[in-house]
Nucleic acid binder design. Structure first.
Lengths: 300, 300
DNA sequence: GTCGGGCTTAAGCTGTGCTTCATGCTCGAC
DNA sequence: GTCGAGCATGAAGCACAGCTTAAGCCCGAC
């Protein structure tokens, strides 16, 4: 394989018509250019230039090399340009993942804002549960994942990743109207103590990592929950609650999926989902830009 | 523009999946490869690899660069290969020029032999007078020219070119039967002294640099020729001689174009055209091969 | 002839980029 | 848990590619 450096200076020589002119173009001395060309001719074991009094002309082999050199030079320039486009967000790709309720409530606005700022970046979004996101980020399958972890609760495994706090999503308990635990609390602002739900039947949303969370929460209050139903769909949870099957945990982000007749109460002690954006430590420009958008909307 | 060297080692890294493996492929140490990649990332101001525990994976920008690097590497390899083909005469081009009579008598055999030896080389042949060939060779318009110069006579201007002697083409004088200068010479083997043509009318072939030659020849014999006609076509010269318009100089190579009724005699003192092959001092492989063919046929 | 433009060569120096060595990290085995 | 293998990275040092300077040569112009 030919030395690309020499090939490119040879191209400059042929384009300039003389070694001296090429040297001026390249910022070298004529001697340097002459030596490069000589080295290339040694490398190919073929004369590439016919030396004239007024400059040089390529031989057939030389003309052949120049054609290839043109392609090489073009690719090198295009490569630099496209990478610059990528960092300037004039092009590129951003692969997002999010759990369902954030996908429905948080992301549409953020994505809209991102597209206004960087219309040329191609976006993709898929639903993915928080537990699978770290590995997929590390594998390069994803650029940014919206995940959550319960507070209090075990921190998710984000080794080698960067977690950006977005906001805390308060968790409510959803009850049918007239549920005994509601007692005399008549106003929606009232909180409900976890211990008052000791005898409740629980409907658990299986899709949102609430599994251990529900058990842990009740354990803190000194009992083991009676789990009557596992669902992975908030509308269904809503229907079950409305029909009096049981009570359920519903974070703020999912509240809009609950029916009107469901009663929602904050929990005491407070339970929240900590919503975070997970990225690689060296985010791509597009990823960093999306982090900016998410942070700015958190502030707003 | 990116440094092609670094780009190619980066390509090797991505293909190998790890810097260490790429280093082994390239014959470097892992450290060297790591530094090259770091330099490329500095150059592009963009992370190009995500570092894994078990190797590396390209980022979007990195994958983009690898695509371009593949093209670059391919072109470099193809360039080297095609130049090798050229020097091995598995491809290439040979642009020949020749004056008319050599084109008809000498070259067909040589070209046939050349094509047998190197069937892949594309040949072209055009008619060109000896005086225009040197410049066209120097300009790179031609690779090899068959030329001639009269002996005795001024050597053609071949500065900076290489002349390969092929053979001497003896010059005859063509006369109509019964021309007075024939006198009592009855056999074709007889020579005719130039001085005996003092009173002849001359038909001059304008195409073959005979212009000054005819005048010089006669001057050596002490007279100025009476030039009755200028032609650039041997058959026409033949017809003119046959009809008794005058006499003409006809080299051996053109004898076959003369009519049967023309009488031919060698000249005394002897006059020849020196047939030469003119090339650049550093001939291309195809040119050198054709010189070989021409020399071998001269020997035969 | 002299002059100037252009290519080449020799000699010498500089900087890129290599090696070696050491460190830190992750993962898997034990 | 500790250890070791494999990988990436950094500092230090060294070598060579490739640059510069300087001189020479060739050719064409004047």
């Amino acid at each position: 394989m030919l030395d690309p450096r020499r090939l490119l200076t040879f191209r400059a020589v042929v384009r300039a018509g003389s070694m001296t002119a090429a040297a001026a173009d390249l910022g070298y001395t004529p001697s340097a250019v002459s030596q490069q060309v000589a080295a290339l001719e040694r490398e190919t074991a073929t004369p590439l230039l016919v030396r004239h009094a007024r400059g040089v002309l390529p031989t057939e082999a030389g003309a052949l090399l120049v054609e290839h050199a043109d392609v090489v030079a073009g690719r090198l320039a295009r490569a630099a340009e496209e990478v610059a486009d990528l960092t300037a967000l004039r092009t590129g790709r951003l692969r997002l993942a999010s759990f369902a309720s954030a996908g429905a409530r948080l992301l549409p606005g953020a994505i809209g804002e991102f597209r206004r700022r960087h219309p040329a970046v191609r976006l993709s979004l898929e639903l993915a549960e928080p537990d699978e996101c770290p590995d997929r980020l590390r594998d390069g399958d994803l650029d940014l994942a919206i995940t959550f972890g319960y507070v209090p609760g075990p921190a998710p495994d984000t080794d080698g990743l960067t977690a950006t706090f977005l906001f805390d999503d308060a968790v409510n308990v959803a009850l049918p109207a007239g549920h005994p635990a509601l007692g005399d609390t008549l106003t929606a602002a009232d909180e409900l103590d976890v211990s008052t739900l000791r005898d409740a039947a629980w409907i658990r949303d299986a899709g949102s990592l609430c599994r251990e969370q529900l058990v842990d929460m009740c354990a803190s209050a000194g009992y083991t929950p009676n789990i009557a139903f596992d669902s992975d769909d908030f509308p269904m949870v809503s229907g079950l609650v409305e029909s009096g099957v049981g009570v359920a945990l519903v974070p703020d982000l999912a509240v809009h999926q609950m029916g009107r007749r469901v009663v929602l109460r904050r929990l005491r002690p407070r339970v929240v989902r900590r919503i975070e954006a997970l990225t690689l430590p060296n985010p791509t420009p597009a990823t960093a830009a999306m982090l900016d958008v998410l942070r700015s909307r958190r502030a707003a």
